[in-house]
Structures are given as structure tokens and as C-alpha cells.
Design a protein around this nucleic acid. Sequence first.
DNA 1: CAGTATCCGCTGCGATACTG
DNA 2: CAGTATCGCAGCGGATACTG
Lengths: 140, 140
Amino acid sequence: MTIDPCRPAWNPYLATCPTRQVLDCVADKWTVLVLGLLRAGPWRFGQLRKGIEGLSQKMLTQTLRALERDGIVRREVFACSPPKVEYSLTPLGQSLADTLDALRLWAERHMDEVIRHRDSYDEAAAQQDPALAKLIWAPS
Amino acid sequence: MTIDPCRPAWNPYLATCPTRQVLDCVADKWTVLVLGLLRAGPWRFGQLRKGIEGLSQKMLTQTLRALERDGIVRREVFACSPPKVEYSLTPLGQSLADTLDALRLWAERHMDEVIRHRDSYDEAAAQQDPALAKLIWAPS
DNA sequence: CAGTATCCGCTGCGATACTG
DNA sequence: CAGTATCGCAGCGGATACTG
């Protein structure tokens, strides 16, 4: 495939650009966590499931399939009993995982500051409208 | 606030860890695109809306509110007519925006390769089950 | 212009049951 | 063990109408 000099670079700010779909799949909570684990080496399905609390089997399958389809994750089936399937990063996946890891690290590193902002924002909102105060404390 | 040496570092792999909520809001398609624009400087509401195709008013408001609450975006209201509201990055937001920009760049840079993988994956699936071939070509 | 409020269809996602 | 298939519903998110 040759480069078409007339074609503009990919631009996710346009609705029809394919990068939109990739961004949708890649900028995802579960993807960040799954790829974060895979950086350490191959993982089996059940290991990933146990390694990420709250991730249902369905969502894990869905996430892994999408990543496999895009060439980010490699799926290797071992013909044995009981069945064994290993997931690992492709070179392409490695580069993405490194990028996403920065995001996970950002969340861990700046969590304190985010919580401070969040608390003061909620407090200010509650004072403006005391009737809303209870909502802030309502379970998720 | 003092550091509690007993408290483990934040860990998004635990279901109840607050970083989960942050990851959920931050690892989001619209957040990536909004913060990508804000890196250039302050933007007005309408400008952001026009700058990101397919982003509805409701989702933009929601996204901006969440980011403001977490101290990532600053909202400045100008008392004039017609009303004018500017959104800009806080220092905290700058650090996040830089991280997310890497993600957007990754998508743009590796789109070709992703598409190649995707096509061959879909083709392989179609050959395994010819009846599914038509589904692959169905509109979104 | 920059929102809020309301309605509501669609689907994302969990729960459950079943298969190779 | 590693999935697929199916059901059911909460909530996401678009469309529309209204407000300061």
C-alpha cells in the first residue's frame, strides 16, 4: 500500500474517521486494565478474570476479542485437556500498552489531588442548594 | 493530610478503589478528544461542540462537568451578553491531557496497521462461516 | 450563547444456563 | 477451563423543548 499524498492524516475529530472506532475500543477502562496485566507476559483467561475485580466474563471476552481483531492481543490455544488459552501482547499491543500504562499511572499518582477537588466541588454544590446535599451522599 | 504508611498505593485492579471511577471518566473517547482541544488554550462551549463531530450537547456538558469536578478543567463564566463561558486546563489537567494526547497520537499513527489486522481477522472469520460474511458488511 | 429539563428508544452489561 | 447463547433490565445518550 502506497501513501496517498492527497489523503489527510487520520483525524478522530471527524465523525466518520476510523480512528474514532479505535479510540472507542482503546480508551476503555477494561482495556487499560487488561493491557496493564498483559505487559508482564502471557495470561490465561481465568487469570485475567481473577486479576481484575468486577470484570465479568462477558466483558472480558468482548474486550479480548476486540483487541485480538485489531492485532493488539494474540490468542494462543493449546490443544490439551483441560483447555488452555493464553493471551499476550503483539508488538503493536506493546506500544499501546505502554501508552495506556501511563494513563493508569496518572490515575494512581494524582488520585489524592482529584479527591480533594471532588470533595470541595461537591461541598460547594451542596451549599448552593442544601436540598441536594443528601443526593451527594446517596449510594453511587 | 498526612500520608498513612499502612495504606497501600491506589490499585485500580480492586473493584472498590477510587481510581476505578477516575479511570472510567478519564479513559473515555470524548474526554480524550475534549482535552486534546483544550491543550491549545481556552475554548468556548460552542467551539468545543463544533470541533468534535458527533458529540451531542448533553454529552459535552456531562463530560465537562465531570472533568471540572475532578479539577481537570476550569470553567470561567464572563458576565456579559450574550453569555460567554470558557473552558481551560488546570495544571492537573495539563498533565492528564499530555498523557491522553499520546493515546490519540497512537491511534492516528497505528491506524493503518490496525485496519490491516482487522480486515484479515474479518476475512478469516467469514471463511470459517460464510453465512456470517454479509454481517461483516452490514452498516455499523 | 450556554446551558437545564424531560422523554424515551436502544443497547450495554450482568446473570444464568449450556457446550466442547 | 474457556468459552457461547439467551434473557432482561438499568441507564446511556440522542432528540426536543424550554430558560437566564
